Computed example of a mutant assay.
Amino acid sequence: MTETYRAVEYAEYGGPEVLRVVEREVPQPGPGQVRVRVRAAGVNPIDWKIRSGAMAGVMPVRFPAVPGVDMAGVVEAVGPDVTEFAVGDEVLGRGSGTYAELTLAPVDGITAKPAEVPWAVAAGLPVAATTTYRVLALLGLKPGETILIDGAAGGVGTVAVQVARHRGATVIGTASPANHDYLRSLGATPVTYGEGLADRVRAVAPQGVDAALDASGRGSLPALVDLVGGPDRVVTIADAAAAEHGVRFTSGGPDEVPGSLADAVSLLAAGTITLPVARSYPLSEAADAHRDSEAGHVRGKLVLLP
């Protein structure tokens, strides 16, 4: 009898309703891989943007697909050449289709989970952390500079604000008014996003803005380019129309910063940075998680608990 596990799957682009829970055959880890029993999986805005087809031009999907890359769990099988991890190790990092009870993960994409970090928090960290380190490197952010983060209350924004502050930068973050106190608690100066953004930023940063990150994809790139004085130090992780504005779109790959996840985990374990979990869902409610993420205004991370 074939061994199976539960996973969230979709077979076509569309709204949250295309997500369904299915049974899949248990995969065997290959060279450089481990199989992880998922304890929690992070939900990222890029997940529903890919599911909707909005990113098909830059990140096409091979159907049927299981969403998700963020996870934390326990190693239950290792590939033939793996020596870095053993069965029973608690890990977090990047998997292949993590909205599931099991996932395969490359050993260079995971790191040990400290006992003091809860499963849900650990699962929410990988993309937010690696994206933050990658973007700050691309922007060349230096101590004493000012960075504007559009969409600062979400998962990536939450980590980016704190890491930038830890590195000695001044941070201005956009969010809805309900999240302004939250941004202040992270060390950022809050402004409301949307029309008139440039004027509001200039009012709180008369010294100017050195760099900007678009983490929201809500059409702010023209304003960010205007504030920075050009597109060279503006990066987006959320707007597929970046090239129209001369702005760099980054989704990982060669831009990744080696050791970024382990470094962020150490900051998290030490309490230097925090990552709140806004809400958790069972696999059967993955569609609701996508709806909540797509609606915006999420403070911190959404996670699935298989």
Rank of each mutant, 00 (worst) to 15 (best):
R24I: 07
P60M: 15
V36R: 00
P45W: 09
G30V: 00
S52L: 09
V22N: 11
Y10S: 07
R51C: 00
V21N: 06
P27H: 07
V34D: 04
N44T: 05
A54M: 09
V34S: 05
R20D: 09
N44A: 12
P45D: 09
P16L: 02
E12M: 13
G14R: 10
D47Q: 01
V58E: 06
V26H: 13
P60Y: 10
N44L: 06
A40H: 07
V8G: 05
V36T: 02
W48D: 05
K49Q: 13
G42H: 08
R51T: 06
E12N: 12
E23C: 06
V61E: 03
G14W: 03
V22H: 08
V22R: 12
P31F: 11
G32C: 10
V58W: 08
R51A: 01
V61R: 05
Y13N: 02
R39M: 09
G57K: 06
E17K: 12
E23N: 13
V21P: 10
V61S: 07
G57W: 07
R24S: 08
M59V: 02
A56T: 07
P60K: 08
A11Y: 10
P29H: 00
V58C: 05
V18K: 04
Y13V: 01
V61T: 15
Q28H: 12
V43N: 02
Y10E: 05
M55D: 03
V36D: 00
S52R: 11
Q28G: 12
V8H: 05
V26M: 13
G15P: 15
E9G: 03
E12L: 10
A40V: 09
Y10N: 09
I50D: 00
Q28C: 03
R20H: 12
P45F: 02
P31G: 08
G15I: 12
A40M: 04
G53Y: 04
R39K: 14
S52K: 03
V36G: 03
V58Q: 06
A11S: 15
I46F: 03
A11N: 14
E9C: 06
V36P: 00
L19A: 11
V38T: 09
P45C: 08
M55W: 02
G57R: 04
G53T: 02
V18R: 03
W48M: 01
V21M: 14
P16A: 13
A56R: 15
G53H: 03
G42Q: 05
G57Q: 11
V18D: 06
G15N: 14
V38I: 15
V43Q: 11
A41V: 06
V61A: 07
R20I: 07
V26Y: 13
A56N: 13
V22S: 08
V22Y: 11
R39Q: 14
I50S: 01
E23P: 02
V21W: 06
G42C: 12
P29L: 08
I50L: 01
A41L: 10
E9D: 11
E12T: 14
V26R: 15
P27A: 11
V58N: 05
W48T: 00
P27C: 02
V26Q: 10
P31K: 08
Y13E: 00
P27Q: 11
G15A: 15
P27K: 09
G53F: 04
K49P: 01
V61I: 15
G15L: 15
R24L: 15
L19F: 04
G53C: 10
G30Q: 01
R35Y: 00
V21G: 14
E23D: 15
D47P: 00
K49F: 05
I46L: 07
S52N: 04
V22P: 12
G14P: 10
